[in-house]
Simulated assay, not measured.
Amino acid sequence: MHDIASKARLRADLLARRAAMPPEDRAAAGRSIRDALLTVPEVEMAGTLAAYVSIGTEPDTRGLLFALWKRGTYVLLPRLLPDGDLDWASYEGPDSLVPGPRGCLEPSEPPRGPDAVASADVVLTPAVAVDRTGMRLGRGGGSFDRALARVGPAILTVAPLYETELLPTLPSEPHDQRVRAVVTPSEGFVRLG
């Protein structure tokens, strides 16, 4: 129980820090993260990349999604299922996004099933924080933990973060999934583990 309570407190603190960031700082961070990710060899060579549409104060992914799509990468985005799991569908540009549950934007293309994420060469995953071993703190719903559990060990999984969100250690539970890298505005792409 200790880990659940400490995760909730830490999540609330980190989300409050995000909310306090000036919008122009968040926008600049999103551009830096986009530029760093576009030069990562695995991302440059990826035929299929699974990602997500950022919402609220998350590091912006919209510019990255558009850039990947324009250069011909096949981008899969999640569709939230009623049980909290994620289905996946293709991103066909900004006009292909429609409102989904919990304030998320989702692809309007036909769903490809929850296992479609396993076909991705790179998986971009949201996180509130990540520690130096790759342990990821999400929003608490477990949707991306389920998706990451379907991804093979050789696949690059990466979380975009703001500067203060790469931490020495994080509390964790057995179902929590690690990521293999993070990208921050100042450090750029960082492999973990």
Rank of each mutant, 00 (worst) to 15 (best):
Trp69Met: 11
Met135Val: 14
Leu124Pro: 10
Pro126Leu: 03
Ala118Glu: 05
Asp145Ser: 05
Asp115Trp: 12
Asp131Arg: 02
Ser108Trp: 12
Val75His: 10
Asp83Pro: 04
Ser119Ile: 10
Leu65Thr: 01
Ile155Leu: 00
Leu166Tyr: 06
Arg62Glu: 11
Ile55Arg: 09
Pro153Thr: 05
Ala116Thr: 05
Thr57Ser: 15
Ala147Glu: 02
Leu170Trp: 10
Leu97Cys: 00
Ala118Met: 05
Trp69Glu: 13
Asp87Gly: 03
Leu65Met: 08
Ile155Asp: 00
Arg150Thr: 04
Gly140Thr: 12
Pro101Ala: 15
Asp83Cys: 01
Gln177Phe: 05
Ser54Ala: 15
Leu124Ile: 14
Pro168Asp: 15
Gly113Ser: 01
Pro78Tyr: 12
Leu166Cys: 07
Asp115Arg: 13
Pro99Arg: 12
Glu92Met: 13
Asp83Ile: 02
Thr61Arg: 02
Pro174Tyr: 01
Glu165Arg: 00
Arg102Lys: 15
Ala149Tyr: 06
Gly100Lys: 06
Pro78Phe: 09
Ala154Leu: 14
Leu156Val: 03
Ile55Ser: 14
Arg132Met: 08
Pro110Cys: 08
Leu65Arg: 05
Arg136Ser: 11
Pro78Leu: 11
Gly84Asp: 00
Leu64Cys: 05
Ser172Arg: 15
Glu163Ala: 11
Asp145Arg: 00
Asp87Met: 02
Gly72Gln: 09
Pro78Ser: 14
Thr157Ala: 11
Leu124Gln: 02
Ala154His: 12
Pro153Lys: 12
Asp121Glu: 14
Gly100Pro: 08
Pro111Phe: 04
Ala127Lys: 03
Leu161Asn: 05
Leu64Lys: 09
Pro59Met: 04
Gln177Ser: 09
Ala67Arg: 11
Ala120Gly: 02
Gly134Asp: 12
Asp85Leu: 03
Leu68Glu: 11
Val122Asp: 07
Gly63Glu: 14
Val75Pro: 07
Lys70Tyr: 08
Val151Arg: 00
Val122Asn: 06
Ala159Trp: 04
Ser54Asn: 04
Leu167Arg: 13
Ser143Ala: 15
Pro101Asp: 13
Ala149Lys: 08
Asp145Asn: 09
Leu166Asn: 04
Ala147Val: 00
Ala118Leu: 03
Pro110Asp: 00
Leu148Ser: 00
Gly93Glu: 01
Val123Leu: 01
Val128Phe: 09
Asp176Ile: 10
Pro168Tyr: 08
Asp121Ala: 06
Val128Gly: 04
Gly142Ala: 02
Thr73His: 13
Thr125Leu: 05
Asp83Thr: 03
Glu165Asn: 07
Arg62Trp: 06
Leu161Trp: 09
Leu81Glu: 14
Gly134Ser: 13
